[in-house]
Design a protein around this nucleic acid. Structure first.
Lengths: 131, 131
DNA sequence: ATAATATATGAATATAAACGAATATAATCA
DNA sequence: TGATTATATTCGTTTATATTCATATATTAT
């Protein structure tokens, strides 16, 4: 759990996208995978790496596993906070992801709805819609 | 020259060691390789990566190539400065490297001397000595 | 108990990264 | 000019990383 390991964990776009979402509050795995449009197994693996680097932590509730940012590590390694708060916002991709998250939260739908494909993000305009 | 590329460039111990040295001022390739005890080809390749990520820049003078940190990028991406100034100092390895650099500078020897093996760093105590 | 669902993991593959040894290139020195 | 030196680059090898598919595990719902 050294410095290099933390920097390596941050050196991947998908993981930065995940952290960008988690900065807004905890999410379960299926919410992350649906919002980012990546596979379940890939999501799990990236979260595993972030956990191992101690950047995120999780707790289980029913069948879900909720991940959240380890706030202690943001305090200890302020450069992580710096990246998440000041760098990601500059790039379109991360802003778009946050917009999808916002729409999902606004919709008041659950992650069950997400998985049952009642909810999708259209590719073209990132709108959340119900089938 | 995006964010990911910069973070990737920082996610390697050898490159952090190089940047740690360069933070004290410019150095030519052979000085870096001798102080860090890594091969010439490896040094060159890591410097190439740092250059490509725009973290360092260089100029040529006679047969030497001098590398230095690109101060503009430290201003633009303050997390880099944060890592170099506040994180590296916490680890023994980087402190030892700086100590070697200090002894080399104190010795007033040139990088020609380094290469001609008039100067070595003993493994055990990191002392600079002249053969 | 059985079925369905959320998550993790094993296995396979593809791609990238790190490294040493040898070679190429370019500048300097004798 | 020819020899030496500093640096970059190529090649081959090894290791690490990202990804997908399929399967295992555990929890919930019926």
């Amino acid at each position: 759990m050294g410095l290099i390991q933390i920097i390596k964990a941050l050196s991947d776009e998908t993981r930065l996208r995940i952290l960008n979402l988690l900065r807004q509050g905890e999410l379960c795995v299926c919410e992350i995978e649906t919002i980012l449009g990546i596979t379940q197994s890939n999501t799990s693996r990236h979260l595993n790496k972030l956990t191992y680097a101690n950047i995120v932590e999780f707790y289980k509730k029913a069948q879900y596993v909720y991940y959240k940012i380890n706030e202690d590590i943001l305090k200890r390694y302020s450069f992580i906070k710096e990246i998440l708060d000041n760098e990601l916002i500059r790039e379109e991709l991360y802003r778009t992801d946050l917009e999808k998250l916002r729409r999902y939260r606004e919709s008041k739908l659950s992650c069950d709805d997400l998985r049952r494909n009642k909810v999708c993000f259209e590719e073209e305009n990132q709108n959340l819609f119900i089938e």
